[in-house]
Design a binder for these strands. Structure first.
Length: 968
RNA sequence: GCCGAAGUGGCGGAACUGGCAGACGCGCCGGACUCAAAAUCCGGUCGCCGAGAGGCGGUGAGGGUUCGAGUCCCUCCUUCGGCACCA
């Protein structure tokens, strides 16, 4: 049952009756305290973090000598449902940490913005007829109120939404920087595109491979052709290529947004591969740096592994296989197996397929190779029809059996000279490597399968391990000595795989037949979407249909007003449909008269919009300097908050907390943009996020009836350990919070009943930040009781009087206090707030035990309140004020442990006999091994146990234990 | 199939670089207060044997290293996450 349903009635909070003490800390008291402090924090700008310069520079002198920290959350998409209890887990975590750091004498930047462009707002708008901007900003207002009510110490002056024109103006500006750049492989960084044109003109550089389709050198190209060549170098470029088209969604998608079974991550529609002209970002140019720099940032191994796999760097070789038309260039990671290549395969979309195809089947071509077709051309056409343009789902439905067709053509193995049949097969992908392979069935499982289907020869070139074939092994992919691999001038036989690879590559390079090569799994980032609710491109097309950047002075290109914002979607299976961007319907807007330097002309605007990842690629930079109208961020401010330091060699946000679901989407894109901006000299940091922590997911109870359908969790009742929905028994499980499990719970009810402080404490107490765990709402009373008890240490709940004393703290309690301080700090620093809370609880238990009637010494009550402050800031502020302090403790000094009090004069040391604890003795803390042993032998129990037995060994570790190893 | 993470009481979880397993909390049991209940407070709570002192067992399973293993190594099981014709 949701607590929203039984929020306390005004004047009678949970459990309160007439004889409840008037100053008891309960939900109503918490509400009064919390709203009052939230108002005061806002009034005083308590959480304003001064910048070293600029409009947010007020008060910087005060913090100039402090060190500084930037603590960041992944900003939310403001959905109509508001926050549920899972969202704030990370937000509370960063807030606790930020508040702790502030009390540790740091200038802390902590704020929250909104990632507000995107499909749900647009779909909701289509349903309701309201403009997406209206619903988006209404939702943002709800989120801001919820965050405020949770007591977040955010610098609200810095809050931005990606949909603000003042924000997306700079998203567009960054797009233009990327558009106006190219990647210079010689210096391994992005450079302004003008440099490229200049170098091409000067003849000091030639166009990169594949960028000059005109077949003539640069000097002989027309101006228009030169523009085309330059455009082909840009980091943001248009190209006609195979893209993921989701007709049901009405838009194209990035590879990262398509699931493994070929459907859209959003909406779960089938996705088809279609050639379309779209914008791309050349993220592949950064593949190596994105990979390399992972080693220098403090991220979970899991996420780094996922990024490494996504980038998928493979080293191997390009090898040219001569044919009757041009040579076929293949990529292989196993150049050492070239002697075992028995056929060649091209992807169905490979551009050489048509030129290569023979006019007729060669004499004696087996039936299986022709697919029963008259000629290679018809066979290829039929095969393409059966593969290209079909969804991944359909392809996978056929299972793993290999399909393909012979082209009628042969290529020559450049090493052995053998003629190899050339096939077309869809198990070779156009998007990876060169789109062509040499097939080595002896050492590759997929090639083996294909060879079996088409009855192709199989040659082993690596000796399989002993018993491999007897055990049913087919292709052998392991290490072993090379066999059957020798010609004049190249003898691999007996070499292991690594040696054989190196030898082969050297031979290929000497003989001009190939060279060492690196390939990435990563593809360029498809960057345009056919949606209304996104950033317009700052691009127009001229009379040649070529893109022209709008000048900075024309930014932002605002989204045009319209009530016709629904995307044009199609039947989900209609693969032949073509995307139609909603902006394309606004003819008045699309066609625009501009003077871009060569007189007024009519241009056509780009009608696609950017993907919703665009804003999140750089928002953390805008928080730094949100009102700057001259730059996206002032370099001095960026260097102050994010510049490299000894701890953060590449710079970046000190702590970034968010869900692991962004491991290869947002986090890869943001790193890429950041590196481009770094290359172009706008940033001092080359990574955006130094330390990443993935907060766990809260799992809520969900209830299913006997037919397996989920029922509304809020309406389920519990009786005698069983669960009932409308009288019918249902079963309980724990799962991800969401509409589909009908188990969404919002924080509001808990805050109303217990207060935000209790809620914060509860979320932090149930486990470490990174860990997923079930949300057991009943347990919230634990943290609630803790706050009530701390409250009573400071004041009398009957009179409301503060009742601490000025007595000295007794020695023993003082030691507990200082040990607690030490442990609580440790917990805060390592983000294990659950242990900090446990230690605070222990200290409080010790205090209430020592002073059951109140009058605890101020010298223990005050540090107790301070230690609580990051977790439960409102009650801490209130108690701090009642203890007689005028200033907020948000900037006060966190208690420090006296090292002298952390070590005891005497310690308890367990004594073991054969590893079992038999006694515990009190000994001086500095006892050495000999005196420990002596003391242990002096213990009556131990003496009795070892009496008459042979002591073979004594292990005495000072401060730890004594262990007697005895015979028998 | 490949890669990665994790398995500790009825539950969430503690346990520093190998050194008293179960801190802290929930729940449960008992008690105080109350006409009663709720709220609050106090005590107990890993299992088995024992009146007790105490003993024995115990961190997914099995093996190993060690004086000593929740922690390190090997094999297996289970759960969760990621990738999936990437040559």
């Amino acid at each position: 049952m949701s607590p929203t349903d039984d929020a306390p009635a005004p004047g009678r909070p949970n459990g309160a009756t007439d004889d409840t003490p008037p100053f008891r800390y309960d939900g109503r008291m918490a509400d009064a305290i919390e709203t009052a402090w939230q108002d005061r924090w806002e009034r005083n700008g308590t959480f304003h973090a001064p910048n070293p310069t600029g409009d947010l520079g007020d008060g910087f002198e005060r913090v100039a000598i402090r060190s500084h920290s930037y603590v960041l959350d992944m900003f939310p998409y403001p959905s109509g449902a508001g926050l549920h209890v899972g969202h704030p887990l990370g937000y509370i975590g960063t807030d606790v940490y930020a508040r702790y750091l502030r009390m540790r004498d740091k200038n802390v930047l902590h704020t929250m913005g909104f990632d507000a462009f995107g499909l749900p707002a647009e779909q909701y708008a289509v349903q309701t007829g309201q403009h997406p901007a209206t619903t988006t900003y209404a939702n943002i207002a709800v989120y801001r109120a919820q965050l405020r009510r949770l007591g977040m110490g955010h610098d609200t002056r810095r809050s931005v939404a990606t949909t603000d024109p003042e924000f997306y103006r700079w998203t567009q500006w960054i797009f233009l920087q990327i558009f106006n750049s190219w990647y210079d492989p010689f210096v391994d960084k992005a450079r302004p595109i003008e440099d490229l044109a200049a170098e091409l003109d000067a003849g000091t550089r030639s166009p990169a491979e594949g960028t000059n389709p005109f077949g003539r050198p640069w000097a002989e190209l027309t101006d228009l052709e030169r523009r085309g060549v330059v455009d082909n170098h840009r980091l943001a470029y248009r190209s006609e290529s195979l893209v993921n088209w989701a007709p049901g969604l009405g838009t194209v998608l990035a590879n990262e947004e398509v699931t493994a079974d070929g459907r859209s991550e959003r909406g779960n529609f089938p996705v088809f591969r279609r050639p379309l002209a779209q914008w791309n970002m050349r993220i592949t140019a950064y593949g190596d740096r994105l990979l390399r720099d992972l080693d220098q940032i403090d991220w979970p191994d899991k996420v780094r592994t996922m990024q490494r796999n996504w980038i998928g760097r493979s080293t191997g070789a390009h090898i040219a296989f001569p044919s009757d038309s041009a040579p076929i260039e293949v990529f292989t990671t196993r150049p050492d197996t070239v002697f075992g290549a028995t056929y060649v395969v091209l992807a169905p979309e490979h551009p050489m397929v048509d030129a290569l195809a023979a006019t007729d089947w060669p004499e004696g071509t087996p039936e299986a190779w022709t697919g029963g077709n008259e000629s290679p051309a018809t066979a290829i056409a039929a095969y393409r029809a059966s593969t290209v343009g079909r969804s991944e789902l359909e392809r996978q439905a056929e299972g793993k059996s290999k399909t393909g067709v012979f082209t009628g053509a042969y290529a020559r193995n450049p090493v052995t000279g053998t003629a190899l049949p050339v096939f077309v097969a869809d198990y070779v992908l156009m998007g990876y490597g060169t789109g062509a392979i040499m097939a080595v069935p002896g050492q590759d499982e997929r090639d083996w399968e294909f060879a079996e289907v088409f009855d192709l020869p199989i040659v082993r070139t690596v000796q399989p391990a002993e018993g491999f074939e007897q055990a049913g092994g087919k292709a052998f992919t392991g290490n072993g000595p090379a066999i059957n691999s020798s010609i004049d001038g190249l003898d691999l036989n007996g070499l292991d795989v690594d040696e054989a690879k190196a030898r082969t590559v050297a031979w290929l390079e000497e003989n001009g037949a190939g060279r060492g090569a690196v390939t990435y799994r990563l593809r360029d980032w498809l960057f345009s979407r056919q949606r209304y609710w996104g950033e317009p491109f700052p691009i127009v097309f001229d009379e040649h249909g070529l893109p022209v950047a709008l000048p900075e002075s024309m930014l932002p290109v605002e989204l045009p007003e319209t009530d016709d914002f629904s995307p044009k979607s199609f039947p989900p299976e209609d693969a032949e449909s073509t995307p139609e961007p909603p902006l394309g319907r606004l003819m008045d807007w699309v066609s625009v008269e501009l003077d871009l330097g060569d007189g007024p002309k009519t241009y056509r605007r780009e009608t696609n919009t950017m993907p919703n990842w665009a804003g999140s690629c750089w928002y953390e930079l805008r928080y730094l300097d949100p009102n700057n109208t001259e730059r996206f961020v002032d370099p001095e401010i960026e260097r102050y908050w994010m510049g490299p330091s000894a701890d953060r060699p590449l710079g970046g946000v000190e702590l970034y907390v968010g869900g692991v679901e962004h491991a290869v989407l947002h986090l890869l894109y943001a790193r890429f943009w950041h590196k481009v901006l770094y290359d172009l000299g706008y940033l001092s940091s080359s990574e955006p996020f130094h330390r990443l922590v993935n907060q766990g997911m809260l799992q809520l109870p969900a209830y299913a009836n006997k037919d397996g359908f989920y029922v509304e969790a809020a309406e389920v009742e519990e009786r005698d350990g069983h669960f009932y929905y409308q009288g019918e028994q249902v079963t309980q499980e724990f799962g991800k919070i969401g509409k589909s499990l009908k188990n969404v719970v919002t924080p509001d009810g808990f805050i109303a009943e217990f207060g935000a402080d209790t809620f914060r404490l509860f979320e932090m107490f149930s486990g470490p930040l990174e860990q997923s765990r079930p949300w057991d709402a009943k347990a919230i009373v634990g943290p609630y009781r803790l706050l009530q008890r701390i409250w009573r240490v400071v004041l009398d709940e009957h009179s409301g009087e503060t009742h601490v004393s000025d007595d000295p703290v007794p020695d023993e309690l003082n030691r507990v206090l200082h040990r607690t301080i030490d442990a609580v700090r440790e917990g805060y620093e390592s983000l294990r707030f659950n242990t900090s809370i446990a230690r605070i609880t222990e200290l409080n238990n010790a205090v209430t035990q020592a002073y059951p009637a109140g009058r605890a010494p101020r010298a223990v009550a005050e540090p107790l309140v301070k230690m609580l402050a990051p977790l439960a800031p409102h009650i801490a502020e209130e108690l701090w004020a009642r203890l007689g302090h005028d200033e907020s403790l948000a900037w006060d000094e966190f208690p420090a442990a006296d090292p002298a009090l952390l070590v005891d004069d005497t310690v308890q040391v367990p004594v073991q006999v054969n590893g079992k604890v038999r006694a515990v003795m009190d000994v001086p803390a500095d006892s050495d091994a000999a005196s420990l042993e002596a003391a242990a032998r002096g213990d009556a129990r131990i003496a009795a146990l070892i009496d008459g037995r042979e002591v073979r060994r004594v292990v005495a570790v000072p401060g730890r234990l004594v262990n007697f190893v005895v015979a028998g």
